[in-house]
């Protein structure tokens, strides 16, 4: 069963995130791919936080060869509308079927702060553009001989304020064709529940599948970094005190991730989780095993 079919069925969905390496070799991707055999979709980041890495489309192709189902992330930071359309046609020709449309982090956070930010489109317009390409037209109005058939996803940040703006943007993304929504990592369940409540009031969870982000962390430093340095992130003080007092922070991080997953599975309106084991890909099978998600339905 591929991701599209799983979305249409009632199954619980698990996606995960993988960062391509900062090298021209493909060995690392193949090695990392081995950790993700049990998930429904693997997000391949597109130069995350503005740091140059191997292209997401190339890495997705390698993942496809390894038998995974890749979800390419496409950001508007580096490419204008010509490059984005051409890349999307290329990716579709290589058999990639899922796409996550993002606006993209500003280049000043990355390793090339001098770079020219493009932002020709924003994520909502990108979603509309991919929808148009699925219908067989380019932005110029030219017809495509073979239309793309992407499953479109969008991102949501449940923690940034004002909440009205978040819901509004989510609504726009879904009305333009997003079929699944992946959120930022949840470290503050009360704030997340507040957001889910609003989403359910608007009935948006029935039009698109909500996949809540879960990030296993190794140390308390990662959490405080996230709280202080990553804009729009919220970390509950309990999480930090728990990690700070833990004897084995790695084990505590896994336990915390599993607990979050269990709480999220009980939340009505949540269709799945999106694991983000940043630089810690090997932990994915362990977390899935511990939260009884490893043996869901066989493909």
């Amino acid at each position: 069963m591929n991701l599209r079919e799983r979305l249409e069925s009632d199954a619980f969905i698990v996606t995960a995130e993988m960062g391509p390496p900062q090298s021209a070799g493909h060995g690392v991707i193949r090695k990392k791919a081995a950790h993700f055999t049990r998930v429904d979709g693997v997000n391949i980041t597109d130069n995350q936080t503005g740091i140059v890495r191997l292209s997401s489309i190339a890495a997705a192709r390698i993942c496809l060869e390894e038998g995974l189902e890749p979800v390419i992330q496409v950001t508007c930071r580096d490419r204008n509308r010509i490059a984005i359309q051409s890349d999307l046609l290329g990716a579709a020709a290589m058999g990639i079927e899922n796409i996550l449309c993002l606006t993209g982090d500003y280049p000043t956070f990355g390793d090339h702060p001098e770079a020219r930010p493009v932002y020709d489109l924003d994520s909502i317009q990108l979603i509309a553009l991919v929808s148009a390409m699925n219908e067989g037209t380019l932005l110029s109005g030219q017809k495509l001989k073979t239309a793309t058939r992407y499953l479109i996803g969008g991102a949501a940040n449940p923690f940034a304020r004002p909440l009205d703006a978040r819901i509004l943007r989510l609504k726009k993304k879904i009305s333009n064709g997003a079929r699944f929504i992946q959120t930022q990592p949840v470290f503050d369940l009360p704030a997340f529940h507040q957001w889910v409540e609003r989403v359910r009031q608007e009935g948006l969870n029935e039009k698109a599948a909500l996949l809540a982000g879960v990030m296993p962390v190794k140390s308390v430093r990662a959490l405080t970094f996230m709280r202080d340095q990553v804009p729009g992130m919220r970390v509950h003080p309990d999480c930090i005190s728990r990690m700070a007092s833990a004897k084995d922070p790695e084990e505590e991080g896994v336990r915390m991730a599993v607990e979050t997953i269990n709480r999220l599975r009980e939340t009505p309106g949540i269709r799945g989780i999106h694991l983000m084991p940043l630089l810690w890909e090997s932990i994915t099978p362990v977390i899935l095993e511990k939260s009884n998600l490893a043996r869901r339905t066989e493909p």
Binding site: Y106, D122, G232
Partner: peptide, 20 residues
Amino acid sequence: PKRLRNGPCGGTRDNGHCEV
């Protein structure tokens, strides 16, 4: 800074300030 025309990006800080 991103010249967004459709609403804020995901980086608005808690105090409502810009991420960039």
